[in-house]
Write a protein that binds this DNA or RNA. Sequence first.
DNA 1: CAGTGTGAACCTTTTCACAGCA
DNA 2: TGCTGTGAAAAGGTTCACACTG
Lengths: 225, 225
Amino acid sequence: MRERSIPEATVGRLPVYLRALVEMAEQGTTTISSETLAEAAGVNSAKVRKDLSHLGSYGTRGVGYDVAYLIHQVRRELGLTQDWPVLIVGIGNLGHALANYRGFAERGFRVVALLDSDPAKVGEDVGGLTVRRLDELGGVVRENEVAIGVIATPATAAQDVADRMVEAGINSILNFAPAVISVPPDVSVRKVDLSIELQILAFYEQRKAALQAVKRGRAADLAQV
Amino acid sequence: MRERSIPEATVGRLPVYLRALVEMAEQGTTTISSETLAEAAGVNSAKVRKDLSHLGSYGTRGVGYDVAYLIHQVRRELGLTQDWPVLIVGIGNLGHALANYRGFAERGFRVVALLDSDPAKVGEDVGGLTVRRLDELGGVVRENEVAIGVIATPATAAQDVADRMVEAGINSILNFAPAVISVPPDVSVRKVDLSIELQILAFYEQRKAALQAVKRGRAADLAQV
DNA sequence: CAGTGTGAACCTTTTCACAGCA
DNA sequence: TGCTGTGAAAAGGTTCACACTG
């Protein structure tokens, strides 16, 4: 295929494939079939083949994909051949965790600054960086060419922080605050909401419990007959 | 409509509507139109109406939805009228943050236990709970009727922890570890992967940069003519 | 007459199934 | 022969547009 614009759903899975591929490479695997990769990524093989076909024809029929080459191609496609300076606003519990998260650096996301509006937190040392004042945001973005901002503030502060980020020229935001933020159409926002995930699980959990009850009910009915 | 099985996409948005509705109620709003709710939730009004129609006909034509009543219905549908005991395994940076996250308790998710396999962490006090040994998991689940487990361990430990959770009878798992875990088909898993979110942002960020370059290229071409 | 509820059209994503190639 | 790459079919989700009603 190799046509412009990879489907959103595919973009969301490429990082998962990438992780699986890197693991394979570390274990010394040099070639992988869509079936094996699918298993490692928790999807089915048709999906893997369709997804990878959007990057180009990098497989060999009858054999599979060359792991190292595919890693390179996926990295290139995702834009991970370059370093991405990231800043984090809101150094509470979550901000701390994010600042110390080693998984970011491993994938080329370099945390260059931590900001907080609370004077009590400014100056604190977290994960090798000193927490700065929120109004230094513009300067930090300019100095480090930050393109990605992470919001880890309480919900009430999220929109203000987002506005400041946009103002400073950031146009990709990862929002952990439990709030909907509005930004200009050319700015990408992704949202991670911890309690929403639990609520979704609760829904399915409840439904399972209800199903069990129905089953038990039927069993009882049958026993009565 | 009010037919069995609400679409997955709708289930994912109900918590967002719920949050917006609760905010509205706190501000004293008693009635809301799909248009207003849509704006607060960051979606369009047709989607809101379709989504809500899956719960039943709770709106009034020409008027809108009764906020309090709709909150009740959404809560009921999501299974939030009951308390959900939750346990967290892996009390590193992220586990700490999750243990202290107030948003869980506010929505009826009660953290009843924190577990870690590292003896150095066992006994530590985090957010009012004492960290326990991982092998106490079975007992904790039984005592508290835990139905939802949160994995906040490193990737290498995730599958083992998931196995223990399943073994103990948990059948809803929220996985923060950057690893694919496999569980029986009747167990629900949701995954939150911090670095995957950044990778997705990087992809779109890169594409935006490429587009800018093309535009600049065209501008240069035009200037040449 | 303002705003819901919903068929119908449309678009995206997934799955199927197999031709074609190393 | 085994596995990729991909049209075609199916499923799922979104948007449109309007009949209907309080």
